[in-house]
Amino acid sequence: MKRIISITGVFCLVLLASCGVRPSGVIAGGEAPQGDITLPIVFFVSNEQLAPATRNVKAVDALLDRLAAGPTAQERREGLTTELPAGITVRAEMDSTGPVIVTSVDPQTLSSTALDQIVCTVAFAGGGADGGITVTGQGITLQPRQCGYPQPVSPPRPAAELTADRGAP
């Protein structure tokens, strides 16, 4: 009899605890909306991450020139920086294996972020290839690399909360 009463009591407590609308932790749902942009973009750095910026040019070389030129004054105010060294020139060429980016400096001296800036700008401009993009300069050629921007991953679901995955397409 006592056991039944205590079980009932615990049950009631659990029930009461899940009552009402209470503050919760952060719950992750579906993927964020994504879409196209009409203007080509170049990648600068904001908070140690790549950040896109639009440039109103068509050709890839022109776009790479803008990349090398760095963010505009307005964009700098908004927190954009570049890791490409000043005065660098970047060009795109095609060879049999895919696009090859030729820099005016030894690519080994470039930071990983700087290489990402170049590779992602080329990739978004439509120059991407399955084999990756090769960066070369001053006779030194690096291994082909992909635009390595981190993609959304599904976080592990919190067990206590039912979440709505289907909410966002």
Partner: peptide
């Protein structure tokens, strides 16, 4: 809002 480049590649 993310920008889509090619399949499997999007950036914020």
């Amino acid at each position: 809002l993310r920008l889509k480049a090619q399949p499997g590649l999007s950036v914020p």
